[in-house]
């Protein structure tokens, strides 16, 4: 286990560095001079040159990369080209929207998907088994932004029970208002996420239901529910755990799109604006933070999976 931990940690660190390289290269290979974005209409060639020096984009790529890595290591993500304000604090300021949104949507999705998925598998012979399955099929085919659009229309514009978008000026200082403005986005992301989770849970449960040990347990006199509860869930949890980590990342991505539907001041909005304004320190910063998060979550998911399944503790 310790050897595995070491190996997996090494892979994580390597991945982080490699991700930084990929990100840097992708962004620098793209056309367009960031100095343009920095200067307003009417800039002279001298001003552009000065701006490039100020940005450091006149240095060779390798130098730029090392400088950037050094900055990142000291948690300095650079300054926005458009606002000339530092990127790091801006990202931090966006977290109180994106993190609660992602986590609550994830928790809601899991709370819905696990029972529904198990039901869809164990009650395939009842009327609601196939119905639940069909709903899940529908759920994974629906684009999140469309769900958001429909929810806004019904709950905000027609019924007037929830805000259509935005976040209160006081943020979480105005807890009620902040929570309200997250209800529809959370439901949107959770609906779409739970649909694909239901399919994983259902499939994992089916695999366990058909396994020999469960049939043995039944043969030894346990009721189906008891057998599943005592022996099945832990086994079904193994593939689901691996998927959960990945789903958390996907939830975050869902949040990025849904934030723009609900006009929420989160990371997604920052990223979309950064892209449309060619503000590459912002894009770079947001992407770096999100990729690192995804990698770390994947790492934790793998560890959890190891702990849950003794069979996997040997290298396959």
């Amino acid at each position: 286990m310790i050897a595995y931990l070491l190996r997996r940690t090494a892979i994580l660190l390597g991945s982080l560095v490699l991700a930084a390289v990929v990100l840097f290269v992708l962004l620098r290979l793209l056309p367009g001079d960031p100095a343009n974005a920095l200067l307003g209409v009417g800039a002279t060639p001298e001003q552009i040159e000065a701006a490039r020096r100020e940005l450091g984009t006149d240095a060779p790529l390798a130098t730029q990369f090392l400088r950037w890595l050094a900055d990142v290591a000291t948690l300095d993500l650079g300054k926005s080209l458009v606002s000339s304000l530092p990127v790091g604090p801006e990202i931090v300021a966006r977290l109180p929207v994106t993190v609660p949104l992602t986590l609550s949507a994830f928790v809601v999705a899991v709370l819905v998907a696990v029972p529904v998925g198990v039901l869809a598998a164990t009650r395939a012979d009842r009327w609601y088994g196939p119905v639940l399955n069909a709903i899940a099929q529908l759920g994974i085919a629906v684009p999140a932004f469309w769900v958001g659009l429909l929810l806004i229309t019904v709950f905000a514009l027609r019924l007037r029970v929830l805000p259509a978008g935005g976040f209160p000026p006081d943020g979480w200082g105005d807890f009620g208002a902040a929570a309200q403005s997250l209800v529809l986005p959370v439901v949107t992301v959770a609906l779409v996420m739970s649909a694909s989770l239901i399919r994983y849970v259902r499939s994992a449960t089916l695999d366990v239901l058909g396994s020999d040990f469960l049939r043995t347990a039944r043969a030894l006199g346990a009721s189906p529910a008891q057998a599943l509860w005592r022996h099945g869930l832990r086994n079904a949890a193994v593939p689901v755990l691996a998927v959960l980590a990945m789903e958390l990342a996907t939830t975050f991505l869902g949040a990025v799109v849904v934030e723009s539907v609900f006009a929420l001041p989160g990371l997604g909005g920052l990223l979309t604006r950064g892209i449309s304004q060619h503000d590459y320190p912002v894009v770079q910063g947001v992407m770096l933070v999100s990729t690192a998060t995804v990698l770390v979550v994947g790492f934790l998911g793998d560890l959890a999976q190891r702990l849950a399944d003794p069979r996997l503790r040997v290298r396959p």
């Binding site: 390597g14 490699l18 290979l29 793209l30 367009g32 892209i275 894009v283 990729t291």
Partner: peptide, 23 residues
């Protein structure tokens, strides 16, 4: 395996947004 893991860590939409950002 590591490289693929990293590439997968960029969710499709983010990767696409990144490419669209420049191209």
């Amino acid at each position: 395996a590591v490289v693929l893991d990293i590439l997968i860590a960029f969710p499709t939409l983010l990767l696409a947004m990144l490419i669209v950002a420049g191209a």
